[in-house]
Write a protein that binds this DNA or RNA. Sequence first.
DNA 1: TGCATATTGTTTGTCGACAAGAAATTCGAT
DNA 2: ATCGAATTTCTTGTCGACAAACAATATGCA
Lengths: 234, 234
Amino acid sequence: MSEASVPPVNERKRGSGVKRVYDVLRDEILDLVLAPGSPIDEIQLAERLAMSRTPIREALVRLASEGLVTTLPNRSTVVANIDFLNLQAFFDALTVMYRVTTRLAAQNRTEENLEMIRARQADFARAVESHDALAMIASNAEFHKAIATAARNPYFAGLANRLLDDGRRLMRVYYSSFGDHLPHCYVVEHEDIIAAIVARDVARADLLATAHADQIVSHIRAVIARDDRLHIDL
Amino acid sequence: MSEASVPPVNERKRGSGVKRVYDVLRDEILDLVLAPGSPIDEIQLAERLAMSRTPIREALVRLASEGLVTTLPNRSTVVANIDFLNLQAFFDALTVMYRVTTRLAAQNRTEENLEMIRARQADFARAVESHDALAMIASNAEFHKAIATAARNPYFAGLANRLLDDGRRLMRVYYSSFGDHLPHCYVVEHEDIIAAIVARDVARADLLATAHADQIVSHIRAVIARDDRLHIDL
DNA sequence: TGCATATTGTTTGTCGACAAGAAATTCGAT
DNA sequence: ATCGAATTTCTTGTCGACAAACAATATGCA
């Protein structure tokens, strides 16, 4: 056949549709490009991503079961709210998760895991150095996800993913609070944690993870308290 | 119009489709009616439940994100395997989950929670009394889910759901191992746990939860060791 | 006969369309 | 003019159909 069947530039691979929608929506939700509580219109999304509503709905179902969106029956699905009322639950779970994943990482880590953890820590240090608050938040989450992976426990890994995603959104609300010297102590703490994991020192890993969690909790608490006062002033 | 538009008896309410498929499949997977690893045919399911493939696919996506099925791209989705190789991870997570949810339940429970927990414990005792192993397994999971609810922490509740679902499948593999007197000690331990939650005795709740977890872990370990020997004999 | 290739068949991924609910709007009555 | 009811509009939930990808079978060649 002489006619060259030129494939349209927008030709998509089969099966990539759902994953694409999921990735785009997930990023936009975690980066607060989509504000919590804002509705998600399926048709609009379908037009924007140049595909049918079916893959979009399947992506939404997945996001819903991960708690990132809420589907109101027969009504629009909305971006999940950040639950400021139940922050204590978040802090409790975060602390436990940090402790157990860091402990288990010290027990079960491989050389491969260490490489990944060090790479994520390098990303984090770079973000801190260039004062990029958004990159700091994201790379911090990735650092702890790498530790959770090294812990070799899918149940804790799932918990970590959920907590760190919510944490990303939560911190992004207050990202202006990240100043110059405070993040640097996080870098040092991360280095200490890595050292404990390398040395397979479980007790020390637990101790450092607890301290790290406390640090973050009190930081967020301080920022929110300040913010509350501002709200009261209005 | 004279012709009475008789609605077919099978008229379904709008929006109930996905939930129905999800519930049916979930039950069949947890009860091992669908064997781990067996493929799920969408068309067959669509015919069986008298609906289109669309709601079935959405239910499958949800089940996949909860780890109950695995979707092979462009190939059939299969019931998730029970991971016998990584049992240590399951035991680790189960122990931590029991401890934190029971602790938090002792802290945060309401009277309403207590009623629910006692009701589930009554179900469990009834199942033990009538030597119904399948009901025992299910009602035991529901008992601990009620405690997780009383803990008022959605992150731990999610972890508990996942662990208890996997545990239900795991125990059902060995359900013949539940004899006459062993379950009774579980009933007593449950009663002690309830007492600690009622008394808001956090330390004691933690202690009892730890012992309860150890009990279950060693029980399952013993059953599996016996089973392994059988396998070796073949 | 044994292996590589072409063909057929089955199952998934995606699409456009239609019907049911809910929100928004219009209309009417007090 | 305001409140309530009917209608319109808009979005979701479901459906049947088509196309791509994988599996199985059949075909051709050494």
